[in-house]
């Protein structure tokens, strides 16, 4: 595989009696869109947590852009260019939507002058444009706590994208988004990712979304990859259809 941006190699992690990662390995090439699917408890979110520094593996290693990041903090990994959105959106709920994005922008630019109000950041327009891109410009001045879960999900992703990551992990980007809007949301996201040449790995339960937006699918089971291939190969795989998708052959 050429142009590997992230390589997770033989990750192991046990929580008490649960083997959350059991030899999980994945290579991600630049500009790929990899969907991770699998039943609940298969270790999908644990894998993201291991790759983004939230959890440390008991063995194995994670290499991003040629640098071993296995023992680095989430903060350090983020600074190297790995963004992340969460299954349950992690936002500053008492702040406005634009404040959330501007704080990400300030972190990215390292602009911490105590004399410049954040709203007057020289690149603030860029964040309004990003909000516009994800269809949430109207909500910019609203307090996040007042917004529905689906919108928070998108804002969470927008905050991660505001950092201009080279690679973004998205944990169930369409959960909480209505079924009529999920393709619209994913079309928008794909457009943004393409425009920024951002590689993406996303956990997803909706197979229509997987079929349409992933160019590779990894099936998680028991803390490791059980199968991987193109969406067509995986979604027609008899075992995957029976155990993951819930459709018998």
């Amino acid at each position: 595989m050429s142009g590997v941006i992230l390589e997770a190699d033989d990750l192991h992690l046990r929580f008490g009696g649960v083997q959350a990662a059991n030899g999980a390995s994945l290579k991600v090439a630049a500009n790929e869109r990899i969907a991770i699917i699998g039943p609940n408890g298969a270790g999908k979110t644990t894998f993201i947590n291991l790759c983004t520094g939230y959890l440390k593996p008991q063995s194995g290693r994670v290499v991003f852009n040629g640098q071993d990041v296995t023992r680095l903090s989430p903060r350090a990994i983020t600074r190297l260019g790995v963004g992340r959105s969460f299954q349950i959106p992690q936002l500053f709920l008492d702040n406005t939507v634009i404040d959330n994005l501007l704080l990400a922008l300030s972190a990215r630019e390292g602009s911490w002058s105590p004399f410049t109000p954040m709203l007057r950041h020289p690149k603030a327009e860029e964040m309004w444009a990003l909000l516009d891109l994800v269809g949430l410009k109207e909500t910019g001045n609203r307090i996040v706590r007042e917004l529905p879960e689906g919108m928070r999900k998108l804002i969470d992703i927008a905050v991660a994208l505001a950092l201009e990551p080279k690679l973004i992990f998205m944990d169930e980007p369409t959960s909480g988004v209505s079924s009529t809007e999920k393709f619209q949301v994913m079309d928008t996201l794909t457009r943004v990712l393409d425009a920024r040449a951002t590689t993406a790995v996303f956990v997803e339960h909706d197979m229509d979304v997987v079929a349409r937006y992933a160019n590779r699918v990894a099936v998680w089971a028991g803390g490791r990859i059980a199968h991987q291939g193109t969406p067509e190969e995986i979604l027609n795989h008899p075992e995957v259809r029976e155990t993951v998708i819930g459709v018998g052959v």
């Binding site: 903060r75 983020t78 500053f92 008492d94």
Partner: peptide, 12 residues
């Protein structure tokens, strides 16, 4: 006060 986890994931 609001969310230290997200702050970490902003690289702060």
């Amino acid at each position: 006060k609001s969310n230290e986890t997200r702050l970490e994931y902003l690289g702060v």
